[in-house]
């Protein structure tokens, strides 16, 4: 059975490690914050200028001066720090953020990602996405395996304008998990969602991929 949005976020949370500084994209990635394992020290970065993002405020604590990159009201926590947009992207571009979990429209075999623009449709802008994929040490994509027309979003080559080239390390979809092997060595299927078969992934994936030894053994 394909993973739900919540299950996708729960699976993506397994990418977190103790001590990590993490930037979460808008949509499913934002939900990952709900699944940080108890006792694990993870600091969330918001690219508009904050480290140590707290949960949504209680109604009476809403502060217009305190929002996340999705423009939602949030709260501060004891370890919070504020800084300018230039400082924020210095820590992103400078490789100081350990992990970015992002959504995508398309990801290619070589780690290319497209997630900001559909030609012919109104373009809202890339925001911080290009900086994040270029600068963060590890980029993990969390997305539906297929678009709303049922077409694979895991492709041999992206068709949409790119956000970054060769930057994605792992793809988590509602069906499975792929690793993007370094140096353009292609995709490796490393996990299946519960109840999903190898055949089902094969039928719904346009990209070529190899299958990990452990997964072969389990099948």
């Amino acid at each position: 059975m394909p993973r739900t949005r919540e299950q996708l976020a729960e699976r993506a949370a397994q990418e977190l490690q103790d001590g990590f500084y993490v930037n979460l994209g808008i949509g499913i990635p934002t939900l990952v914050a709900n699944y940080i394992p108890a006792g694990m020290e993870v600091t969330l970065q918001s690219e508009n200028g904050m480290l140590g993002m707290g949960p949504f405020p209680y109604d009476e604590d809403v502060d217009p001066d305190l929002i996340n990159a999705g423009k939602q009201t949030i709260t501060e926590i004891p370890e919070s720090a504020y800084f300018s947009s230039a400082d924020s992207f210095a820590m992103i571009r400078g490789g100081h953020i350990n992990l970015s979990i992002l959504g995508a429209m398309e990801v290619a075999e070589n780690g290319d990602i497209a997630n900001w623009m559909i030609p012919g449709k109104l373009v809202k802008g890339m925001g911080g996405a290009m900086d994040l994929v270029a600068g963060v040490k590890r980029v993990v994509v969390v997305m539906e395996h297929a678009n709303k027309h049922g077409q694979s979003k895991v492709l041999k080559a992206c068709t949409l304008p790119l956000t970054g080239t060769g930057v994605v390390s792992r793809i988590i979809t509602d069906l499975c998990v792929f690793d993007v092997k370094p140096g353009g060595a292609g995709l490796e299927l490393i996990e299946l969602a519960e109840g999903v078969t190898l055949d089902e992934v094969a039928a719904r994936t346009e990209a070529a991929y190899s299958i990990s030894q452990t997964l072969k053994a389990a099948a």
């Binding site: 690219e47 947009s85 900086d131 080239t165």
Partner: peptide, 25 residues
């Protein structure tokens, strides 16, 4: 890109006419 915009403004104010970034390559 948001970080490029922030840095272009920072650079402008700091008297730096241009810089190189991996963002957008």
């Amino acid at each position: 890109p948001q970080g490029t915009l922030a840095e272009r403004i920072r650079a402008g104010g700091a008297g730096i006419p241009a810089f190189f970034t991996a963002t957008g390559v």
